[in-house]
Design a binder for these strands. Structure first.
Lengths: 344, 344
DNA sequence: TTGTAGGCGTTATCAT
DNA sequence: ATGATAACGCCTACAA
């Protein structure tokens, strides 16, 4: 853009109208006389005129941009949520702007700031735990926002769209218990810093406790989400002699890695060990064997969040918070435990 | 932002300086006297002042934003390239803005337009095939750009960063041929509309031809990239009675789906059929069995593109085009063919 | 239906 | 080292 892109003024000159008219031709064509409109649009086309977003934003005080603060985009399910956000926003003429906190467990205030600098009309925040200063800034500026992957009411009065990870944990526990399993292992993200992992863990243990079973410390591994991490975790469990007939994996990447490692160690799934994952991702049916998982409404979160904000920006003040359902999808990777079938 | 975010002027008033000084305190603090600087920054902090990007862009004629036109982000390797782009750009203080062409095979001019509207300082384009009007617009405005996932010289004088998909195809062919395979099947993206899929296909066939082997029409399937698509393709190949001892999958998603389907049909990999994928993605080592693939420098493409543009924007005029190396990674999914071992 | 003109919040140039 | 003041390109009342 260094030299000089054609401006409204040039288009106006070429079309023989005023700049105001050109502006209208572009944003509210229905206000113009048929003839003027076509003439102006022809000129626009001829010059390859493109509207200057910054100038527009400055003058109109809106950017038609929504910002989202999302940590760990790389290897996670959030990408799917974003797809949902994107899709709906796009349909309404909004653009999505992403910001990653530098360090996942750090404050997201800097990330919010970069979004605010860019003039986002509203903000999406992932999770329920955020710096109070962040909410304060949002409040002062009256920027609409919504939490996603979080539930309202959890001691927070913020609009939120998500599902119950604790319930998801219980679903998994109940399923395995019902099959007859009593000895478990679990690989999950660090429960200290990841509220969703923590909830799933708590729910799972809750379920075990109700039948008097438990999850020994030695059968728990906390690690980052990833294929290799899942495989390494299984290696570690086996190395330390953990005994279990059912393995719960905190997300789908971990599960895939774990399945590969189990196969390498000669453990047959589900004959020797049942495996369950969270998040029924697109490839869960195509692992070997097909993976029993909890289906999360991941994309729906994004869609709902987007449409809430869009309506909010239209002036609609309705309450936002939504709890979406989770559901267990049983596939080939789980079955009843075979007594003493664990290879050593 | 509806009510009114604090402005430079308010900060200036609070700090008892002029707006110019506040501006400098934020962008070139070293020009200010120590005392003034701290006083101003305190005021900034106190008011929770955030710079107004649109106004800055308008006045400075730069946005520190790079745009990228990328089709089919959903299920593809481009995501990794973007991570590379992102990382490097971020380190240099740039922000990445993405635009998807509405329809993958449509012109990317509208996508470019949305980027231009937002005032991107430079543009990344995926692939070598683009509307001439698009290049024209870039030229007129003197917006720097670079093609990625494309090679320079292919009848195009555009700066480009990518690798040789044709060579990748040959690597796969040579590997299988060397193992003794002579009967092949291939699942790939539509070669009509996907130049990369086409190149890989051509390279593969080239390799076969050189030893007098061939790829019968009935042993070829073109489909979109995806797990299910890979599985369905295998079903189709088997249903139509295709006979092959080696299966080549155009990308990693297809390969994973194919492996699952082969297992379902009782075909053991690699005992009954060798399988090769393109793109050595993170999970390739964790499929069952671990997948032989071509390793593409996917993330490097993004990194190189980013650093080229950054330097270019600094005024560096050096030639950009880079051909990155591809490499075959042999794992457990390929072996010598066992005569007549194909289950029916 | 169309033209006119006053901002929008910064940056950058010139003085001082 | 700091202040004053034109742009920057468009939108949007308001007027005609």
């Amino acid at each position: 853009m260094t030299p000089r892109a054609p401006s409204l003024e040039e288009v106006a000159a070429l079309a023989g109208v005023s700049t105001g008219t050109v502006s209208r031709a572009l944003s509210r064509p229905e206000l113009l006389a048929e003839g003027t409109r076509t003439r102006v649009l022809a000129a626009v086309d001829r010059l390859g005129y493109v509207r200057h977003g910054a100038a527009r934003a400055l003058a109109s005080r809106r950017t038609r941009t929504i910002g989202a603060v999302i940590p760990r985009l790389g290897a996670s399910m959030f990408a799917t949520t974003i797809r949902g956000l994107q899709r709906v926003l796009e349909a309404d003429g909004y653009t999505l702007l992403l910001a990653h906190p530098a360090d996942p467990s750090a404050s997201s205030l800097p990330a919010l700031t970069t979004l605010l600098e860019r003039g986002v009309d509203a903000v999406v925040l992932l999770g329920r735990t955020h710096d109070p200063a962040l909410f304060e800034r949002l409040r002062v500026r009256q920027v609409p926002y919504v939490l996603i992957w979080a539930l309202a009411g959890e001691a927070s009065a913020h609009p939120a769209i998500g599902f119950d990870n604790r319930r998801a944990g219980r679903l998994v526990g109940d399923h395995l218990v019902a099959l007859g399993h009593r000895r478990f292992a679990m690989i999950s993200a660090p429960t200290q810093e990841n509220e969703r992992a923590r909830d799933r863990f708590l729910g799972f243990v809750e379920s075990l406790t109700s039948v008097g079973a438990q999850l020994p410390e030695a059968a728990r591994i906390e690690t980052q989400y990833g294929y290799r991490e899942g495989a390494d975790a299984v290696d570690a469990l086996i190395a330390r002699g953990a005994e279990f007939t059912a393995l719960v994996c905190g997300n789908d990447y971990l599960a895939v890695g774990a399945l590969a490692a189990l196969a390498r160690h000669g453990w047959r799934v589900p004959h020797d060990v049942s495996v369950v994952g969270f998040n029924d991702s697109e490839f869960a049916p195509y692992t070997i064997p097909a993976l029993t998982t909890v289906r999360f409404p991941i994309e729906a979160i994004g869609e709902r969040a987007a449409s809430y904000l869009v309506e909010r920006l239209r002036g609609d003040e309705r309450i936002a918070s939504v709890e979406l359902p989770v559901e267990l999808v049983v596939r080939d990777s789980t079955t009843t435990p075979r007594r003493g079938s664990l290879p050593r």
